[in-house]
Nucleic acid binder design. Structure first.
Lengths: 204, 204
DNA sequence: GAAGGAAACTAGCGCTCGTTCGTTTTCAAG
DNA sequence: CTTGAAAACGAACGAGCGCTAGTTTCCTTC
């Protein structure tokens, strides 16, 4: 997409408000889920009235799909980048999640819903990502520590550690006052994750 | 509570239907969240009409609180059992989650909501549980592998692995057809978790 | 078996949801 | 400055929500 041949240089006003709507909707959907988020809340947080939303999105479903699409697409791009090393890929994904801290919560909301009413974009993304992660892990020399049937469980565990950290951040802030999304805390978690992988899959 | 001095021996009809309502509500709340679950759905799944629910619970909020209370209480009991060894505690908690596979999804729904509208029973439970887990980990000799500031992150990571496995089970079933909650798969995950802890915190 | 209370039901209330119609305002191009 | 389309708006619709009053049915205990 993005066929911007001889396109207008300055982004139009409509595009900017659409982006603002997506930002506020992303935060609200991530915190309250699809059913718990009302279009009145989205409009109010975006500084608009409800009918104005319909100038940019066909309805609640379309808005939700657009939020998911905009958030997930860069992660897919980072995952399928052909020339990247494993460490680069992990670093790039962590960077993306850092830039959009609401995305993991959004994905977790979808995961919890399980089979029913699942967004197609997520289904198409999730399975190949797990498969690729499995292959990457098997290629590491340290994977011999684990049996064949344990590798998928290891992938799942690492996924949970990465995504779960962002998902639980708001709760920890409410409980401890500690902000896990601060740059220092994020750097600490990145270091910890590297140590974790090193402990589970030693290079030698 | 439960002042059952000279109480009726056989459980009354009302108690049995209350239990049935709790079961169906637990499943629906876990899958669709609080806002996404309607009392009409709960009543229909329980084989009742809506007004009958109010003979057992004061309203939607009270029903949700009762579901959470019934599910979390045994886990708390397992956590604060005074004479249990660490391995016993882990085993008992995994057994509880096995018996109530919907509970982790329910807790995750609460976690995702973060600070706002958080159930008090969860807040009171979560913080001491994390603190105790931290102490337990520090007592293990293998914890010297990790720095002081990494221990809380390790606790969080292990929590995510345990709870996340149950939370993602419905999605995996929808994607692969593989049922992670089967007894064989659960035994595999239990073994894997033990290996994981052993790799992260070696005994020697 | 009679009686009384618990439990399930029918009908419907007030309210908020997502959505739409018709109008007014804003903005960028000629 | 004019102009026409894009964008924001006020008002309101039908549907579905949680919840309740009043009535009927069921079960338990003498």
């Amino acid at each position: 997409m993005s066929a911007a041949a001889a396109a207008p240089i300055r982004t139009a006003k409509g595009e900017r408000t659409a982006e603002r709507i997506l930002d506020t909707a992303e935060a609200l959907f991530a915190e309250r889920g699809y059913a718990g988020t009302t279009l009145r809340d989205v409009a109010s947080a975006a500084g608009l009235r409800i009918p104005s939303l319909y100038n940019h999105f066909a309805g609640k479903d379309a808005l939700y799909a657009a939020v998911l699409e905009r958030g997930i697409a860069p992660v897919i791009d980072a995952l399928v980048a052909p020339d990247a090393s494993d460490a680069d890929t992990v670093q790039r994904i962590l960077g993306q999640l850092n830039r959009r801290p609401n995305l993991p919560r959004l994905v977790q909301q979808e995961v919890l819903r399980g089979g029913e009413h699942l967004s197609p974009v997520l289904v198409q993304w999730f399975k190949p990502a797990l498969t690729q992660a499995e292959e990457t892990l098997r290629a590491r020399p340290g994977s011999r520590r684990w049996s064949d049937e344990q590798i998928p469980l290891l992938v799942l565990a690492l996924y949970q550690v990465v995504v779960g950290y962002f998902a639980i951040a708001p709760l920890m802030k409410a409980l401890n006052g500690e902000d896990l999304l601060e740059s220092e805390a994020l750097a600490r978690q990145t270091r910890f994750f590297a140590d974790l992988v090193a402990a589970l899959l030693p290079e030698e």
